[in-house]
Design a protein around this nucleic acid. Sequence first.
DNA 1: GTTCGCATTTTGATCGATCAAATTATTCGG
DNA 2: CCGAATAATTTGATCGATCAAAATGCGAAC
Lengths: 351, 351
Amino acid sequence: MGRMPTVDDVASAANVSRQTVSNVLNSPEIVRESTRERVQEAIDRLGYRPHASARRLRTRTSSTIGLRLDPLRDGISGAVLDRFVHKLAEQADARGLRVMIFTANGAEDELSHIKRLRDGSDIDAFVLIATFHGDPRISWLIEHEVPFVSFGRPWGSTTDDHRHRWVDVDGRAGVRDTVQHLRASGAQRVGYIGWPSPSGTGDERRAGWEEASGFDTADLERYQVVTLDGVDEGVRSARQLLAMDAAPDAIVCASDSLALGARMAADAAGHLDLPVVGFDNTPVAAAVGLSSIDQPLDEVVASALTLLFGPEGGIVRPNPDSNEEPTHRLLVPRLVERRSGHRALGEITGA
Amino acid sequence: MGRMPTVDDVASAANVSRQTVSNVLNSPEIVRESTRERVQEAIDRLGYRPHASARRLRTRTSSTIGLRLDPLRDGISGAVLDRFVHKLAEQADARGLRVMIFTANGAEDELSHIKRLRDGSDIDAFVLIATFHGDPRISWLIEHEVPFVSFGRPWGSTTDDHRHRWVDVDGRAGVRDTVQHLRASGAQRVGYIGWPSPSGTGDERRAGWEEASGFDTADLERYQVVTLDGVDEGVRSARQLLAMDAAPDAIVCASDSLALGARMAADAAGHLDLPVVGFDNTPVAAAVGLSSIDQPLDEVVASALTLLFGPEGGIVRPNPDSNEEPTHRLLVPRLVERRSGHRALGEITGA
DNA sequence: GTTCGCATTTTGATCGATCAAATTATTCGG
DNA sequence: CCGAATAATTTGATCGATCAAAATGCGAAC
């Protein structure tokens, strides 16, 4: 394999100067059409491709997004982030951006990675996932004016800092709509299985249930179970709810793991028609025919990139100035119903 | 944020020349100890980090691995590749390598991405996953002497081409060992649920079952079901097997999706103790307590990197010369048993 | 005390592109 | 047909590092 052609090679092949070749690539509108065609023809004929590192050295931008992969989760819910990663790669590509991934043990470790990648001019902007209360990454990035966007709203103090661009899914609205839908479909008492507080996302989802459940304070206590995530936990919690005097006739869960357990417990207890709804619409939910609240990841990713780079561009925008455009987006998830009309898990296990 | 320090800044701070600073970073052994310390101190004090693009421009290497993410799978099994991606990022990091991801629609599209990334000197080496029979990527990469390694053996003609470095998991041995183990534990007739031929991995797994099953030709036909992947398909296939006259008393499946379906069908039919084994040991298998054959992904990734870069280095090695060292590794998966002693799916649904 | 050899450090050139400014070509009004 | 204004193109410098080769220092041998 011979040496790769450079701008100079193309330039002499097309009888123009380097800069003109560069202009054809980067600002074609300022080059006369006849010249542009001639240069383009030379580019195609020689198979020229700009050397990414040389360009980056000069322009001081890398057109690369950094993304930290979270520690592997044993649960089912990890799949959401995998889908997110995939879609980010897809859409970044469409904008001519590259995605570089890395892993880290904890926020501190991640910060050192971020510094290294940032200082090496390897990466222009970062995408953060799984933000949490008092996240040190966020304050550091703001402090050092590193462009970033997070999937997950800022929990805590920096909520209204316009320098923090974020996208999130309104779990509260998603659960609220779902509960309303269930009640409109005839459910009298919608129970809830969720995670212990404080948990940013978990608390929001619970709040959605509380708003739409129609329960008084006492019943709000009775009709919810607080538990860690997991299938076993879902089984136990659902059993507990179904053993009540006026047992719930529908159950909403904070995750698909919990919902899967709840579904199994409900089926085992003979409640084949009891609606059970999970969250995240993971492959598992689809595989076993479980209703679930789906996060619109396409929109999440599109919004994240728009906040970072603007509607079209592929160039990093400076940190947003105070009160121009919104620096965040809150998207509404939608319920994917799978139970009615679909072969039910219960039809199988009970067959 | 002021301008980042460069080698020259460090050099004048430590009263040495640029090159000495460069040497401290890249060949510390040739710098006198006292000088090295002085320079190092200046590096630390100024917070200097080498500019990655500048270095790459000069050295013509990027220390970056390209990885294409497969199209999203709706099934449960996609999780294996996610774990692979994660572990690759982890181990690459430990070697000072970066991982860049991209997506593509089909092998042709992927090739054009590969060309672009390669020609832009963005990427030194590629990692391919999900290889298939007559994979055009492989021949192109070999042809153009682009370093690469695949997770997945070459199916078909190029099997013994030493220029193709690959790592794979010996599904045949994994299934064979599992079947032997089941028979040693008392199973008389081990059934098999797998995918239609031709399927590289699928055929290997079936072969493992055939070798260890102890069946004659006729029974080999009777005790296996051929079906596409999916939970529903697993349910149907298991029902079919369990309805036989001398029904199997253990079932091995080509995937966790199938196994989950089979488990559910077996439980529903009252065979709570019937061993069902899946493949891939996905989070779902762990969540519902399903036995599964686990791919040693840590070793897979470690082997892949070793084949590409050598035991320690972070520099791309030239394409392997003919018959020096092995250019592939075949790893043996191991069975993770979850049924015995573990709370069974049956205990719940049957409770 | 010179000289040779080795260890250590410095200097000049270069990687491939873009920026900023200078230069040349073209258009248009009068 | 000329000169100014604008369009198009070219030239010189530069981004930050490493390579290759030259220069310097230093101890041992003669």
